[in-house]
Design a protein around this nucleic acid. Structure first.
Lengths: 221, 221
DNA sequence: TAGATTGTTAATCGATTAACAATC
DNA sequence: TAGATTGTTAATCGATTAACAATC
């Protein structure tokens, strides 16, 4: 009766990283790896890797380690990659276009079924093979395709408004690039907020902090 | 002798979010706020907010709360926003251009002093008022401007190579969008990895997980 | 078999929450 | 002054690390 254990978000956020490293190891021709070896390459402890994986099952073998290809595929399954899903993009400005072009949606099972904008100059353009539609045609498309996830590359106000509409239309997840914390509003819908501004500010802190350290070191000489 | 307390990364990552919320509250005309009120708006506990802020000093007043504008500015200072810094962008493809256009660098004290690419079709284009230079001219520009941070919107292999060069050239921080974990290599340089692919994979997990929950609920009826 | 390495339990560490005295 | 709310200490909770028996 596969009771879904409540796995902490910290563990979940490490899974895509394991997935990336395993893909590379697999591509490099390696067949097996121990948690100790993987931990060194990833900058983690072997204990943590084993704990993380054992949230989902025993994928290794005592005395041997883990089969890289098998583990890679298992993590892919855990993440739900490969399950066919339909995505729509709202906001085909610079960022929206870049996300649409840059991301390998297909490899994660996503198919882009619609791109929308309000700007009449953008409507009609082609983004990655898809013609940009006016936002007014969104309900029609939702009825037709029932998209699973929406990528929001729109201003804050639009995100607040449109997310309401989309939730009623049955959207299951938001990949939110807008300057708004969507996760606070809905808890039966998956939300992944990407705050690039917060990330840049964090970098700013780190640089400043390193500079201060340096200065202190100089002063204590 | 302002010994920089070792503040945990969890606290630091919350600072930009406080900063955003305080900006909005300030713009809305509010003057003061209590940790209890702010905690409700942000989905945190009041205790956590007070603990977080007290890592850096006592910015509130008993019986009153916090002055929004003052706290906003203090957090800005803590983050090191506003300190003039020079940035360069490496890789002016879709993502690089979008990041360059989309981010408000100036409001964080950043000035973009150079944009580089290897592709001769892109070299010579203008991105946000800056002409894209060939990557071969990077050393010259570094000698001239001594940029503080580099934004990497380039493939993995290029990121590995160029980061080495840039570290020797005295770069202080990387905003890394490449599919490579830069933080593992340097510890005297600030690194902020932005793995959009990992974020999308995490969303995939969340959606899958909610679906499973739903199914279980249905089954247990 | 002996060696290696997992899966898992126990110990430690750190982060979050609660409580309350200090004080505006 | 009385009420409100901070700053800070103590208690709790959860996540990471260490240890080791199980086993390939």
């Amino acid at each position: 009766m596969a009771k879904t254990k409540n796995v902490s978000i910290s563990v979940i956020r490490r899974l895509p990283r394991y997935y990336r490293f395993l893909k590379e190891l697999s591509d490099s021709g390696m067949v097996r790896i121990s948690s100790a070896d993987l931990s060194k390459r990833m900058g983690l402890t072997a204990s943590q890797i084993r704990q993380d994986l054992n949230c989902f099952g025993g994928f290794g073998q005592q005395g041997y380690g883990y089969n890289i290809k098998v583990l890679y595929e298992e993590i892919g399954k855990i993440l739900g990659l490969g399950t066919p899903r339909k995505a729509i993009l709202l906001g085909a400005g610079n960022l929206g276009k870049a996300v649409c072009h840059h991301m390998d949606f297909a490899s994660r099972g996503f198919e882009m079924v619609g791109v929308f904008d309000v700007n009449p100059d953008i409507v009609g353009e082609t983004v990655n093979g898809i013609t940009v539609s006016h936002i007014s045609t969104l309900p029609t498309l939702c009825n037709l395709y029932h998209p699973d996830i929406a990528i929001l590359c729109i201003p804050k106000e639009a995100a607040i408004e449109l997310s309401k509409t989309l939730v009623s239309a049955g959207i299951k997840g938001f990949w939110n690039f807008s300057h708004y914390d969507l996760a606070l509003d809905y808890d039966h819908v998956a939300v992944e907020n990407v705050h690039l501004g917060d990330s840049l500010s964090t970098l700013c802190y780190k640089v400043t902090s390193l500079e201060k350290e340096q200065e202190e070191k100089e002063a204590n000489k």
